[in-house]
């Protein structure tokens, strides 16, 4: 049976991942829609830049975030003036895993929107639906597979985030030590059995996400 400490780690990991997905999803949704539906100048450059976190080492991104949130950057100073010092808190961990999960979520959202036949949207307009209603009644429901996939993949990526989180949030037991960090720490201190338990918990969380995904996902086209 997992002890109290293990449960805390798992809970923290879950909280960090949910918050990461929650703050990134609206962004991925909007930008995914924009990239799928709108033509604008420098579009492919924007698309490439947004995918950059996917190919950069997470530690490099972590370093960038560290700088951004520190006293040395105007952004960090502005936050400080507001009384916010996110570095080495669980919020920083959520921010970091969100940034890492973002390109994947963006990809899936974009694919979801692209899978919707635009002529169905036109048809809805001719039937009297405003742009907003078309979005709510046609586009989003038809894109839901991609959007759900974005949520689950984003969550899975967030619970396994290590490099960027370590740099901006540290590895503080009970505060920012998420499952991947806990595995690493246990191994460093020679507690192999504990590391194994943490690994098992990671698998359980990932499985939970995937099962949830399968439950939410409607039956495939051919199965109905």
């Amino acid at each position: 049976m997992p002890g109290r400490e293990e449960c805390e780690v798992a809970l923290l990991t879950f909280k960090v991942a949910v918050c990461a997905v929650a703050w990134v999803f609206p962004l991925a949704l909007f930008l995914g829609w924009l990239l799928a539906r709108r033509r604008f100048p420098l579009r492919s450059l924007v698309e490439t830049l947004l995918l950059l976190p996917l190919v950069l080492p997470p530690s490099a991104l972590g370093f960038l975030l560290l700088w951004l949130l520190s006293e040395q950057s105007p952004c960090g100073r502005a936050l400080g003036a507001l009384g916010l010092e996110p570095l080495f808190t669980w919020q920083a961990a959520a921010l970091a895993s969100g940034v890492i999960a973002f390109p994947l979520m963006l990809r899936f959202c974009q694919a979801g929107f692209q899978s919707v036949d635009r002529r169905l949207e036109s048809m809805a307009r001719t039937l009297g639906a405003s742009r907003l209603r078309v979005l709510g009644a046609v586009t989003l429901p038809l894109a839901r597979r991609g959007l759900l996939a974005a949520l689950v993949i984003g969550f899975a990526r967030a619970i396994s985030e290590f490099g960027a989180t370590l740099i901006v949030a540290g590895n503080i037991p009970g505060q920012t030590r998420t499952l991947p960090l806990a595995i690493y720490s246990s191994l460093l201190t020679g507690q192999d059995a504990l590391a194994l338990r943490f690994a098992a918990m990671s698998i359980a969380l990932a499985l939970l996400a995937l099962i949830l995904f399968r439950r939410l996902e409607p039956a495939g086209e051919g199965e109905r």
Binding site: S122, M123, T126
Partner: peptide, 13 residues
């Protein structure tokens, strides 16, 4: 815009 035209459009498909 199409939604304010009150035109029933039936396309080929």
């Amino acid at each position: 815009p199409p939604e304010h035209r009150a035109v029933g459009y039936v396309a080929q498909e």
